[in-house]
Design a protein around this nucleic acid. Structure first.
Lengths: 112, 112
DNA sequence: ACTTTACTCAACCAATTAGTTGACTATAAT
DNA sequence: ATTATAGTCAACTAATTGGTTGAGTAAAGT
């Protein structure tokens, strides 16, 4: 795992560790939205939402396009995929015991 | 999504946003380890690693068992699963365009 | 031309984070 | 009994985070 890949995971997980930002991601999954659109549901200033959006943008999770006086945001999936890929390595820790054992034995077997 | 589920995701993503803590998770996937075991590879004090471990423990990602004068740590998968479940909702954003379209249409269809 | 809208920017604040050190406690080994 | 090991705790520091406000800019509507 390269230093950049590490930094990308840092940024992705950090960006997603905030409920407001996750809500933004959820909203953007339904389609493109402007900053004002995104800010409306939240009980905080536009500046605050703008900052959250910047965090998401810096992490590569959203793409912000300037169009006239509005900013149009789209969700980008690549970093999410990388996060899932990393987490998936630990899949055996949440599947049920029997499966975990089976997997463990299969792994041992394949390593002989 | 309940407030507690939100807080759990906050804690999980936040815990995983640090490289040292992800390295600890990776290490623990290979099996139980003591705090000293975990601390050895890192260029930081035992206290610092202990704090990282506490973050992971608070997030429910690791289980710490006091045994004599050592602390034995095990990985717990449930929070990781919840994180993956959340992220998986946005799967359509990283699979290729055709699949994304197919999924979108299938969803529209299922909602009729 | 004027006003409203959609934002950005800078400055500030309080809380949290990631690290340190030094002193301490409890268990195990000699 | 003494010493070494494993870890905690409290206090401190520097940087980051999540929010605010007020002022400014650029585009669009009237």
């Amino acid at each position: 795992m390269t230093v950049q890949q590490m930094a990308q995971l840092d940024a992705t997980f950090s960006a997603l560790s905030d409920g407001t930002r996750r809500a933004i991601v959820t909203r953007l999954a339904d389609g493109e939205a402007t900053l004002s659109d995104l800010a409306t549901p939240f009980d905080m200033s536009l500046t605050a939402v703008s900052k959250h959006l910047r965090v998401l943008s810096d992490a590569g999770l959203v793409d912000i396009e300037k169009r006239g006086r509005t900013r149009h945001c789209r969700l980008r999936g690549a970093p999410i995929k990388e996060a899932v890929d990393w987490l998936s390595k630990y899949e055996s820790f949440w599947i049920d015991r029997f499966d975990a054992l089976a997997r463990h034995l299969a792994k041992e077997d394949s390593e002989k």
